[in-house]
Nucleic acid binder design. Structure first.
Lengths: 336, 336
DNA sequence: TTGTACGCGTTATCAT
DNA sequence: ATGATAACGCGTACAA
């Protein structure tokens, strides 16, 4: 079933059917009704492909996700769902491209073959080749996470620097003077992954500013690594009484590792995290945390990109989110 | 840049360029090299839209995901990533459609506007309107999870019935005679969600067969619900010494609820789960579990669908996976 | 190897 | 003011 067949059955020309559908021109009530009736009874819908070819836009957005082998976190995965829903609310579809490092064919396909009108890039690095590519080609996009080089582009980001400062401040206010930071894996820090990099930086600054004794450690994204990390922290600084972690994926391991070495939370050690509420609340004690607002970030990203598509010369969106820390059961004043 | 421009620059016809690209016809080495050179230096890639229109296939697969408000589980989300990667490995892209219940516009769009060549349906119900729609329209698809009505279609499923029988058998072999099943939410059971339904059924059968005392309880997908569920279980059957759960999302809550009521795992109560390894291992004690093989299921689904597209009359794929239970620290013989 | 019809909507232009 | 005609977007594949 195509537009020509509808036109034939309704006894009008193809363009008339098109105008009935788009409303871009007045069509007499009589003909409009006749065409509409034929469309109804035949269940006709215009082919997205043909329309895309004619209009030069696909009404599809690309979402560049990190390869699975990086074991996506719950937050990242939620973000994918949130983006899909936000896009659906605007009658846009989301095309997935698992890319990064060696896996770039899907990304190339999306851009080169013009499968999408614009792109959302997840897990942006401070120096990100995908961003450079997109800028070079003049392809509309927004990133989740800022790049560091001041490249001009729209972004939605979580204020890791601010959150870490605030978190350290909270612990400081509770009297803690020996504080550890559990960061994301060293590999990500080396590759200048924004959150890891900015968290490390903000932590160092806060330590100096508040005249604390601070230890920052990278930790692989799993529970076993957390155990090793806890050992390393207390080996380096036995007096630590508070831990701030931005590593959601090892949070459960962190809590159990503390328990296993006999440190009670929060009596001996306070724990503060940046992690999804689901994750923080399923632990015992429930961990105080600032929640990564995946849902909101997804919506912001989609809307920023759609605005860009509507107004290519409009202002770039810069959305910096800073969710509040929610106090649960893992914080206490410095012991002793 | 389009194929006509390439043809002009290379001094050949458009069809020759097309044949150079597709290799569907012999082209003289000289012309081939000339064309290839022009393509190289211009960075030309054929438009996916135009090609889709010409060939009648989009090289895109649709993935129907449940709405976010159902709070996707880690497994489900991993599955999305796995599908995207498997598709990318075959140079296909994945189009996301968050659908189900009221949210069906994206689904309708995918089918009606022919945005995709085939569809993968997640979270299939025993009687699933999406499956009926797909069959009616003769649209190629595979489901994750079987429907119950014997409708003809390809599927990939986890053998919940078999796993529950096996799990109960394991607990029985350890001497347990009072066993509880923690199922998915009542709402899902009512809607005849396959895993919930088949698990309940298999549990009942195993209980009869092995002459056990069994209690089956539905549990909402969160940790608080698990606490209520544990209470309900012991209220109904105080002698329970083993719990089998297929509810991954409340697993952490289940373990802490047991601890909080003073039941030691595994000394007092054994726990066996069907859940992702990540999830089971991050708990203390580490929970013995059969892992939901999201990765494999994703690959199977993509490959089954691609086979179907290649051979529409070929056999329907029926893949029933039954991952092994991995013993960790949550199982012990019946106490006393 | 090339010319050209075709797939399917959209929209500018012409005719009424 | 409406309806019809035709060109266009871009690649594919058959006939010549």
């Amino acid at each position: 079933m195509n537009i020509g067949e509808i036109a034939r059955r309704a006894g009008v020309s193809r363009s008339t059917v098109s105008y009935v559908l788009s409303g871009k021109r007045q069509v007499s009530a009589e003909i409009r009704d006749r065409v509409t009736a034929v469309i109804e009874e035949s269940g006709y819908r215009p082919s997205a492909t043909a329309r895309a070819l004619a209009q030069g836009e696909t009404r599809t957005l690309g979402l560049v996700i990190p390869p699975m082998r990086h074991h996506l976190s719950v937050d990242q995965l939620h973000f994918v769902g949130a983006v899909a829903e936000a896009a659906a609310d605007h009658d846009y579809d989301i095309l997935l491209s698992p890319s990064g490092q060696d896996r770039d064919r899907a990304f190339e396909r999306m851009l080169g073959e013009r499968r999408v009108d614009g792109v959302i890039v997840m897990e942006t690095l401070l120096h990100d080749s995908r961003v450079s590519t997109l800028i070079e080609r003049g392809f509309p996009f927004v990133t989740i996470g800022r790049t560091g080089s001041g490249q001009e582009h729209g972004w939605v980001d979580l204020d890791y620097a601010g959150l870490v400062s605030e978190g350290v401040g909270k612990l400081h206010a509770l009297g803690h003077r020996d504080i550890a930071l559990v960061n994301r894996p060293q590999e990500l820090l080396d590759r200048e992954y924004g959150p890891a990099f900015r968290a490390a930086d903000a932590f160092d600054k806060a330590v100096v500013e508040l005249e604390l004794h601070g230890v920052a450690r990278c930790c692989d994204d799993d529970d076993d690594a957390a155990a090793a990390c806890v050992e390393a922290i207390f080996a380096a600084a036995p007096a630590v009484t508070a831990i701030l972690t931005i590593n959601e994926r090892s949070l459960a391991g962190l809590v159990t590792a503390l328990a296993e070495r006999g440190s009670r939370v929060p009596e001996d050690v306070s724990v503060l995290a940046i992690a999804s509420a689901r994750n923080a609340m399923s632990l015992r004690p429930k961990v105080s945390a600032a929640e990564v607002p995946a849902e909101r970030m997804g919506r912001h990203a989609v809307e920023a990109l759609l605005r860009r598509l509507a107004e290519p010369e409009g202002e770039l969106a810069h959305v910096l989110l800073s969710p509040p820390f929610v106090d649960r059961e893992s914080l206490a004043p410095r012991p002793g």
